[in-house]
Computed example of a mutant assay.
Amino acid sequence: MIEFPHGGWTEDAFAGVARAFRENFAIGAEVGAGVCVYHRGRPVVDLWGGYADAERTDPWRPDTLGVLASPTKAMVAAAALVLVERGLLELDAPIAEHWPEFAAEGKGGITLRMVLAQRSGVVCLDHDPITADHLRAHSPIADALAAARPEWEPGTAHGYHATTFGHLISELVRRRTGRTVGRFFAEEIAARLGLDCHIGLPDPESAHLATMVESKAEELMAGADPGDELAMLVALGDPGSLTFRAVIGSMSLDTAPDPVLENPSYDGLASAQSLARLYAAFIGEVGGYRLIRPETLAETRRVHSTGTCLVTLLPSAWGLGFQLAGGPIFPASAGLGTAFGLAGANGNFTFADPEHDLAFAYVQNGGAREIGDMDDRARRLTEATYQSLGSR
């Protein structure tokens, strides 16, 4: 094993990941970060370095929890798919069978499969934006979703459910189990796998939390000039656009999230070690437990949506709850041709690849360096991970 000066280790074959991790710090691209890789159901890379705070006084630790942004949705998808396997949810039954109020405004035929594949059209809450009080009460968000109108005919196109995804599934989980998705995940998945992954952290004082340094994504949320490099950025500056309405206009939150609150679309907390372990359990047994059967995994990885996303205005491909290779944010060119995962607008990056028996999680607090493209730090680490397979 190779000792890493910040902290952690790699198996010899994966030394290239350590070099890429070190390079990210050497060029000044990181504040603090952790990266973990599982291969064939066990960890082969576990590295951490830098600082958990902007002042660079609090060292990043192996148990440091970062704010995930969109990779939070991996926990939500895990809960939904586990409940499908238990027969408590159905991919192709109308959501309104369990949530009658949801049928309003032409949503009676929307299914869980449509939500997981980003095809339901229910992407905007700008008629009643999410607030911290709404998150505390939960029910106002469910009521706003029930009152929402699809932005396109459900099932006919796809657009990233950036804000609504976690809340749609959380209410459906609550209707079937009596628990929000955060509670269900904690009790039924995290406890079984020994994960330090949370959608809502009951006791923040007991955890080591990283402070997110404001990134381009957070600057945009705060009203910064988006620029005009991409159609998506232009749209983010237009309050009348679907892009703005589905992202900025659907939330009225402080940029610093309250770790206690459940925001299942964005504000999950996890260490890189635990997030990689979660992804490893999607594709095989970890500690004697596997999340979903191979048949469900195959359906999860099947392309359900492809082409230009109506919300991000970028090429993308989706399975059930996860991005597939098919666009600049999750590109096949980085080695991800047979992978599924989720990239965060704040720079975090996660994936699993059953064809190569890989699970990968990169969690940091330096913020996104790219908007509308794969972060260069994550690309270096991902490419090094795949290159390492050839040396085994």
Rank of each mutant, 00 (worst) to 15 (best):
L230R: 08
G159F: 15
K216D: 14
F185I: 02
M232A: 15
A148P: 01
D196R: 11
R149G: 09
S170G: 12
A207F: 07
P226M: 01
E229V: 15
D254V: 07
F185L: 03
R149D: 14
F185M: 09
S170M: 08
V173C: 13
E187S: 01
A191V: 04
H167W: 02
T211F: 02
A162W: 04
E171I: 06
A190R: 09
H208V: 13
A231P: 06
R183K: 13
A256T: 06
E151R: 15
E218I: 06
A235F: 04
L168W: 01
T156C: 01
A217G: 08
P150Q: 07
R245C: 10
G166N: 05
A146K: 15
D225C: 09
F165W: 08
L168N: 00
L236P: 04
A235V: 08
M251Q: 14
L236D: 04
P226I: 00
T180C: 02
L201V: 01
L201W: 02
I189N: 11
P202N: 10
V213C: 05
R183N: 10
I189E: 07
R176V: 15
G240L: 04
H198Q: 03
A157E: 11
C197H: 12
A210V: 11
M251P: 03
G240S: 03
L236K: 14
P239E: 06
E205M: 03
H158E: 03
P154I: 01
A186V: 12
G237N: 07
F244R: 15
L236R: 07
A231I: 13
M212F: 08
A231W: 11
L253H: 05
E171F: 13
V247H: 08
L253Q: 03
A217R: 12
D196Y: 02
D228H: 15
G249V: 07
A256W: 06
I169E: 13
H208Q: 13
A235D: 05
F165Q: 13
S250G: 06
F165P: 08
E218W: 12
G200A: 01
R174F: 09
E229Y: 09
S215L: 12
R192M: 09
Y160L: 01
R176Q: 06
I189H: 09
S215M: 13
E153H: 11
I169P: 10
T180M: 04
E188Y: 01
F244S: 11
A148L: 02
T156D: 01
S252E: 15
L172M: 08
P239I: 06
G237V: 00
M221E: 13
H161Q: 15
L172F: 07
L193V: 06
L209G: 05
L195N: 12
